[in-house]
Design a protein around this nucleic acid. Structure first.
Lengths: 207, 207
DNA sequence: TGGTCTTTTGACCAATTGGTCAGAACGCTA
DNA sequence: TAGCGTTCTGACCAATTGGTCAAAAGACCA
């Protein structure tokens, strides 16, 4: 058996485990944990179900590993926000990175969304821990910028939520966006970036 | 059997069907269609499974009826946007209504979100039809306001998406928001409203 | 009170689910 | 090429799933 505590994973083990993660990401991100089946994942990966279970202990184990790798990826764009940079440039860059993440990793975004919507049973601790801490830390930076008069005053935490919301929307609600706009990826994300930027920086008041 | 084509539903039929809808909304909104089970719904409603199936033909039938009733509720706040009103007042009111909907009907919001994230297999037609049409219609209004110089120029469709995103976020990602902010409902939604309004109307530029 | 229609139930079913296991096939190195 | 650890498979299992059915229980009106 492929034991996590074992010494060196073989080349095949590394390849197949990655193959399974890929396939599982497809299925979990589309159906959520309970809606996904091992048969679907196995077929998607081109393996038999017992073979799949040779590489992962259980359905939960696959899902857990995906979520585990996800959170860091998900928070990295915010970590990059530089306390010593120019406020508007930093926020602009952050929005940009988040929107690129939504475009390039929509499955990861949906996996995360599924988990949260369903009450985050498996990552509640991460939300209350690392995620909360990071937001608090960056909120301090944002608030300082506001106090220094370099950024309009608002609630920093809600500001971060707003940025998450408008960017992740383009990954999580992709079908809806496509239904309205059509499916030209480039135009969609370009226009989205322009709109979000205009909105956040100039607001809706006519100039 | 309770037949949809039947003449008059009895009092019991009306009550029990409503009871089932309520219970099913709980379960579907938390687990999505595939993740929800009839047993859960039945128990939640305080009925036996066969009894539940006496009132609804199938699991799909319950889900379909919920989605059916949902879309109108969901789009009504946008319908109310008055082409003859004052642009900023109208948009402010729309944001307000959407945020209230997120606060008062989070299960409905999550049911919708689950459906969309999972590819909208059951309401694709509604997205491409009524939803798309309504957005197009209101986009014309928004664009006219922009052309008249009464509203900053942006892409109207993406503006609507942004409003949806920031408001529904507080229903769909509730656990995450709570994990960061704590669970004081009143403060949460009050601060959210203030932040969104400041953001949308004044932007982030220091004044 | 009896009769009829509605509502509810327990027992049941086939299909699907996550997971096991013994052994066959494979692949690498001595 | 023999041997041995790794990889893979088919057959299988118990639990859960959505759904059926005949018959019992309840409600309501003559």
């Amino acid at each position: 058996m492929v034991d996590g505590t074992q010494r060196k994973p073989t080349r095949i083990q590394r390849q197949k485990r990655e193959l399974i993660r890929e396939a599982a990401l497809d299925v979990f991100s589309l159906h959520g944990f309970r809606g996904a089946t091992l048969d679907q994942i196995a077929e998607n990966a081109g393996l038999s179900k017992p073979n799949l279970l040779y590489y992962f202990e259980s359905k939960e184990a696959i899902h857990a590993e995906l979520l585990d790798r996800l959170l860091d990826t998900w928070l990295d764009p915010l970590r990059e926000l530089d306390a010593d940079g120019d406020p508007l440039t930093e926020i602009r860059g952050y929005i940009q990175r988040k929107l690129e993440a939504a475009r390039d990793f929509p499955r990861e975004s949906r996996l995360f969304a599924n988990e949260i919507i369903q009450g985050a049973p498996r990552i509640n601790a991460e939300l209350a821990g690392p995620l909360r801490d990071l937001i608090q830390e960056k909120s301090v930076v944002l608030r300082r910028w506001m106090d220094e008069g370099r950024l309009a005053k608002t609630d920093p935490q809600h500001l971060i939520f707003a940025i998450w919301a408008v960017t992740q929307h383009y990954a999580d609600f992709d079908v809806q966006v496509r239904a309205v706009l059509g499916s030209d990826d480039e135009a969609r994300f370009h226009d989205a970036a322009a709109t979000i930027e205009a909105l956040f920086f100039k607001g809706l008041l006519p100039r």
